[in-house]
Design a protein around this nucleic acid. Structure first.
Lengths: 210, 210
DNA sequence: CGTCTATTTGAATGTACTCAAAAGCGGTGG
DNA sequence: CCACCGCTTTTGAGTACATTCAAATAGACG
């Protein structure tokens, strides 16, 4: 159930609590008092997500914002012909949800699925909203999170507008080497907006160039 | 210098201050005291931007976040062959900058240009940062702004992954009819990621369908 | 070991691009 | 006011990038 080898996992259990990782993540941007930390942690739900299981399906109401404590997940959507498109890959220490549907409490248009055995800490929309009243510092935290998500997404838009499939693949491998090692080529293709067959051709070309 | 006919402009001058629009924009998400409003306004720089002039060029440091008081602007970038790609169109009551470079105070990779005679209110990066200390409520305001920007951008990604050029054009016209009326087809094409020639073909096909 | 899915390969096809030329349109100056 | 200039839009022919379909091969998993 963990991305770490077993012995490392045991080691971690002895030296840190399950919530230390997420608190470190938050501490990068805001500092909380011990009481605030406790309150925040009390809102989280710990969930084990075995490989290939989903934590969100189409038409479900997306009311969870999930912090990835271990493992990796991806979100994707289906087009009218049933073709999958990967919206994002998310690794350890990332936050993930169907943001549009989470914020608007509308039925989801996407799926979120574990790429490998994972553990997440989920924050319910109700608590997300309350958090801003009880600990206003979280406004700052999530502002920065949203800023980063926005600029990352905009960079992706620019890359799809200005680069061809081969260049986009090269950048993807470069930017997310950890992800590239975990997911199938079919999934990478669906992130890049090309067919798996064509990605295979690109990879062969790349080999012959070196 | 304004998007409004002259007589309307005069009328506005008599009934509202130049800053009322932006204060209304902010009041949609947070409420400020009169003192806070005054402080915020004191940080803004009013700028007239005649059609086709730029407020940001490549390699410049992007240290302004601009609220569009009147008119319309667009941001775009150039690829290695000099081809333009429109990153976003922005209308009255929108906020615009090269967000990545604004936040990181790095040289810009984009251009921002007025589509028509426009007026903007600019907030300097220095003041943007200070604002969160002096009036923490702005954390909330910009969190919501960033959230909206993020979800809008993600929707664009999904649309480019799942729709063909013709469907993307139809949605664009539908979603931003005001923009469609103001900009050239070449600019729309560069937003959709297609050539102006091909957009012309699409438009002809659309006519024959009706 | 067998089954299921991912990946590779190739041929035929389609969507969108390039290049070139003509037509349309808007702004400017004589 | 009209003529001209530059830029946008249209049109068409030829081309390229990427897809579809089909079949073979390789890998993953129970």
């Amino acid at each position: 159930m963990s991305a770490h080898p077993y012995f490392l996992n045991l080691y971690l259990r002895h030296t840190m609590e399950i919530h230390d990782l997420i608190l470190q993540n938050i501490a990068k941007h805001i500092s909380l008092s011990p009481e605030e930390e406790d309150h925040f942690i009390s809102l989280l739900v710990y969930k084990e997500v075995p490989k290939k299981t989903t934590i969100l399906t189409e038409d479900q109401t997306c009311n969870q914002l999930s912090y990835i404590h271990s493992g990796a997940l991806r979100s994707y959507c289906l087009d009218k012909n049933g073709k999958e498109s990967t919206i994002m890959f998310a690794m350890v220490d990332w936050w993930l949800t169907d943001m549009y549907c989470f914020l608007n409490e509308s039925p989801s248009m996407t799926f979120i699925e574990a790429i490998e055995d994972s553990c997440v800490l989920s924050l319910h929309k109700k608590h997300f909203d309350q958090l801003f009243t009880t600990i206003p510092k979280f406004e700052r935290f999530f502002r920065i999170l949203m800023q980063n998500a926005y600029t990352r997404e905009q960079l992706r838009t620019i890359e799809t507008l200005t680069l061809d499939a081969e260049e986009r693949y090269a950048r993807f491998i470069n930017k997310y080497p950890q992800i590239a090692g975990k997911v199938t080529q079919k999934q990478i293709a669906s992130y890049l907006g090309i067919t798996p067959e064509f990605l295979s051709v690109i990879r062969k070309r790349d080999l012959h160039r070196k």
